[in-house]
Amino acid sequence: MTHPFRAPLSFMGVPHVTDPGAARGVILGLPFDCGAHPTRVGARLGPFSIREQSLLLRPWDGDSGINPLEQLGLVDLGDASVTPGDVDGAMGIIEAAMDIALSGGALPIALGGDGAIALPQMRALARRYPELCVVHLDAHTDAYPIDGLNNATPFARAFEEGLIDPRGSIHIGTRRSHMVPGVYDYGRQLGYGIIGMDQLIKDGIDATMGQVRDRIDGRPVYLCFDMDFFDPAVAPGVCTPAWGGASAREGFAVLQALAGLNVVSVDINTISPPHDVGGMSAFLAATLAFETLVMAACGKFAL
C-alpha cells in the first residue's frame, strides 16, 4: 500500500531530514523577520517561496555535467522553529539550528528570513572557525551605528562580540539611501572593507573579487547574499529594494569570481514573497543556491 502522507516541501525535492548525517550539503530554512520595517514585512515567508520556486530547477548542471544534489548528498533540514518578531527568542533557536547543520561538516545554505538572521549564524560559525571572515553582498552594510539587534545591525553586533575578523571582511554592492548618517564611515571604523556597486562595475567583477581574495587570504568565509544586492528590476520581492543593483548575469558572475575562497557557510536572505512579482525574486534566489551547490560540488570552494 502506498504511504498516504507527503513529505514537507524541500529544496528541489531533496530528502527532508532532521539529522544531516554524512551529507556534504544541507539546506536550512530560517523563516524569521523582525517585523520592524514600517511598510514592508514578509521575509518570514522567504524560505517556503524559495523552495517552491526551486521546483522549476533541474538537477543536472549543463556546464560541468554534474548533478550537485547527488554529488553533495544534499538534504533539507526544514525550518528552524522561530516566531517572527521575537528577536531574542529567535536568535538562540537559529544558533542551535546552525549547530545541527554544521555538525556533520557539511556546507550549510541558509534560506532567509531578513538580515538579522546573520548574527546567530555567525555565533555558531565562530565557535568552529577561528578568524571567520564575511563576504556580504548587499545594498546596505547592515552595520549601522545604532543600538539593538535588527536587520540593520547584525554586523555591528558581530564586531562587538568578536565573532568575525573585520580586517578580512567586506561589504559589496552598497548604494542609495540610508536611515541614519555616517553608515559607511562607521563600517570602516570597525575595520570592514566597503565596495559600492558603482565601484564594483567600474573596476570590474574579476579585478574586484581578486582584491577580496587578497584581503581574506585563505581564512574561512561566511558568504552572505542579501537579495537586494540585485536590482529591483530582477528582484523586486526583497525587504529593502534599492535601484542601481546587479543584474542576474552580474550576480552570477560575482559568485563565480569567488571561486577559491574557503567558503564554510552560505546565507541567501531577504526574499519577501508578498512583494514578489510571479515569484521571480525567489526563483532567482533558488537559482543562486543551485549555482552555489554546483561550485561546491566542483571543488571551487575550499571545503
Rank of each mutant, 00 (worst) to 15 (best):
D79H: 02
A116C: 12
M179H: 12
I205K: 05
E52Y: 11
P68F: 10
P154C: 10
I172H: 00
E95A: 11
A110L: 13
I194K: 03
G13Q: 07
T174M: 13
D88L: 14
R215I: 03
A296E: 12
T83A: 13
D142S: 06
Q189V: 07
Y192S: 01
M91Q: 14
G46F: 09
C298Y: 04
T208L: 01
G237V: 01
A143H: 00
I195T: 08
D99M: 05
I66L: 15
G115R: 13
P59I: 13
Q121A: 09
D231M: 03
G245I: 04
P145S: 07
V263W: 11
V264G: 07
P31A: 08
R219I: 02
S54P: 08
Y192G: 01
E95C: 09
V87N: 05
G113I: 06
G237N: 02
D114E: 13
D228Y: 05
A158P: 04
A97W: 04
Y184D: 12
I164P: 01
R215K: 12
A22S: 15
P15I: 13
L119H: 03
G162E: 06
N67F: 12
P241H: 02
A116P: 00
C224P: 02
E160D: 15
E161S: 09
P31H: 07
G85W: 09
F229W: 06
P154W: 11
S247N: 05
S272R: 07
D231I: 03
V277S: 06
V294I: 10
G104A: 05
E160I: 09
P145K: 08
G62V: 14
R44S: 12
V183C: 01
A286T: 01
E70W: 10
R58T: 14
I93N: 00
A246N: 05
G210I: 04
D267E: 15
T174H: 10
M98A: 08
A106D: 06
E161C: 10
L284F: 04
D33R: 07
V294G: 03
D217I: 01
V254D: 01
V294M: 07
M179L: 14
P236V: 03
G299A: 08
